[in-house]
């Protein structure tokens, strides 16, 4: 499944980059992300709990930030296994200034396997969109809070 999109965060690219790579912020903003435990430079063990029908359940995996080039770009590599199967995400994230906001583009691929793939095929891209939107809304809120 291809993942791509563009979102605006009301902050400078430096601030947006910091927010999107800060494990504490991510734990607050990423839907279902319960815990990020550092395991090495730029790598975390991740615990997720999903409440959306097709992918409901607890997932465990790793999240890595690779090719980091602050505040312009990085690559996000996610691997998770759970009751519904597995999810692997590999996507590049880019930050470009757009007035006083940061324009964040992401592009990559998600591989989904197991029950999720077989049963949830029709729901996956909808669910992915829903979660992505929720995530960026949360990050935007954090950005506004940080400003105030």
């Amino acid at each position: 499944m291809q993942l791509s999109g563009n979102k605006h965060i009301p902050a400078s690219i430096d601030k947006a980059y910091t927010l999107l790579t800060d494990p504490e912020v991510l734990t607050r903003t990423m839907p279902g992300l319960k815990r990020l435990t550092p395991i090495s430079e730029g790598a975390y063990a991740a615990d997720l709990e999903m409440g959306v029908a097709a992918i409901k359940g607890k997932y465990q995996g790793t999240m890595r930030i690779e090719d980091a080039s602050p505040p312009h770009s990085y690559r996000l590599v996610l691997d998770g296994q759970g009751p519904g199967g597995f999810v692997s995400v590999n996507m590049s994230v880019e930050f470009v200034s757009d007035g006083d906001e940061a324009s964040v583009s992401y592009q990559g691929e998600a591989q989904v396997g197991g029950t999720i793939a077989s049963m949830g095929q029709r729901m996956i891209s909808g669910v992915a969109n829903y979660l992505t939107n929720q995530f960026f809304q949360n990050v935007a809120k954090e950005a506004i809070q940080a400003k105030n």
Binding site: Q111, V112, G114, T115, A117, S118, Q121
Partner: peptide, 14 residues
Amino acid sequence: FDNQGQLVTGSFLD
């Protein structure tokens, strides 16, 4: 099957 060998027609919905 998708290119990763996932059966994407795994229910009577699909």
